[in-house]
Nucleic acid binder design. Structure first.
Lengths: 231, 231
DNA sequence: CACGGTCTTTGCGCCAACGCAAATAACCAG
DNA sequence: CTGGTTATTTGCGTTGGCGCAAAGACCGTG
């Protein structure tokens, strides 16, 4: 019997790294694959936690909304990332919503099974703590940025971070490898799409970036870094 | 032999809740108490992680600074809270600085011992994941608040949150039970001490709060909630 | 009880960024 | 190719909150 490719993906994921193959095989018995088309929702904010996913392929967006419809983007998720971290912490409901921004394949498993596996195999629980700590640290950084930096710098930093985690080298420069609108950038930086548009237009004029409809290519990463760091 | 009071504190802490007493006794063999006077620093940002603490008594402040001295307050820690979460995630350095704002007693233990205990007792690792998840969720909320709400509301929300976690009922109202300056509130809400001062003055005039030098009493929590929720 | 240090208050001018509005521009479905 | 939908750009007036500056209040200490 051929080893399932899913085992391979899990073995490389942030949550199951270093976990023995036989444990993964057991987990895989209750796991399943699920596809989400771009734009489809994986779960809504406040949904009850039933399933935990690991991204096989694709890209998803985590958002958090207020009652009156205001929304911010918490982070983007890509291959190997956990979708629905609440399952790791024993949370009852999802604190944010997750939507696919590209066609995506997720490997899902029941939250109860995962919780049980964590009690049995400390390595998984330790990985969970590590990945949550990583996300927490990222958020601390963004909070500080939002509190202390001006809009232009925030946008610059955000683009550089996105390039780092989902950049693709092309002839023109580093392209953000998923659809990213002005509105999206606004929701990541705590500003409005108008201000983002004006800022990007400015950079476009200086040849720093090359952008279009839901598309951003960083032509001169060095220049963008300069904007982000000083002046 | 009398059971040490530290065991009791640990058993009730967010990290060691539900962990068998004999495991705690083992951990306590390498643990020690340390006092910090108000104003003293437990560790600096970027310090190497060597020790993990649990707060026995007191109150501490976690901050994050930029190179140019800008700083924000990430959170306050009180009895039962973990100080130096990086030890739980395998981090090499502390991502933030911790300072005592009141005289405090901490129970410390070597990070390596704690890490080892996590691998041996999944319950500790699971608690670690839970508490990190809680902090992450709190930060998501603050990020959204900072990104979408105006200063006055942010300050109102912040005060209400502080009252929740460290409020003390008095004749005049709910008092924040540790020294809290205008500057501190500014660093929690992403604004300046001037704006905080003006805002508090306004509320003071309306009888909503009663504040002084590094001291805030919420006289009318209901009115403050109203400010926080709707205009 | 006077002094120095730390907090807090308040006035004033200014500007980054918002909010509104309206004109493109790009994409999609049929 | 055409009409409809979704994204982007840009202009213009407004303003919340910053930055600077100076005065006043409070506190611990010698």
């Amino acid at each position: 019997m051929v080893e399932s490719p899913d085992i391979d993906i899990l073995a490389r994921s942030e949550l199951f790294r270093g976990v023995p193959a036989d444990v993964l095989r057991q987990l895989q018995a209750t796991s399943f694959r699920r596809k989400f088309a771009a734009g489809e929702t994986v779960f809504q904010q406040e949904d009850t936690v039933t399933t935990c996913y690991v991204v096989a392929v694709g890209r998803l967006r985590v958002t958090q909304s207020t009652l009156d419809g205001q929304q911010i983007i918490i982070r983007y998720l890509g291959p190997g990332d956990v979708v629905g971290y609440a399952a790791l912490t024993g949370g009852e409901v999802h604190p944010g919503a997750v939507t696919a921004v590209d066609d995506s394949h997720l490997i899902g498993m029941p939250a109860a099974v995962l919780r049980e596996a964590m009690t049995r195999h400390a390595a998984i629980a330790i990985n969970a703590a590590a990945l949550l700590g990583q996300r927490y640290r990222d958020l601390q950084l963004r909070l500080r940025e939002l509190a202390t930096e001006k809009v232009e710098r925030r946008i610059a930093h955000t683009l550089l971070r996105l390039a780092q985690q989902a950049g693709r080298r092309t002839a023109r420069g580093v392209e953000i490898a998923f659809p990213l609108s002005r509105q999206d950038l606004a929701e990541m930086t705590g500003t409005t799409l108008h201000t983002v548009s004006r800022t990007l237009s400015g950079w476009e004029g200086r040849g720093i970036i090359d952008s279009g409809r839901r598309r951003v290519v960083i032509a001169k990463p060095g220049a963008l870094t300069e904007v982000a760091e000083e002046g």
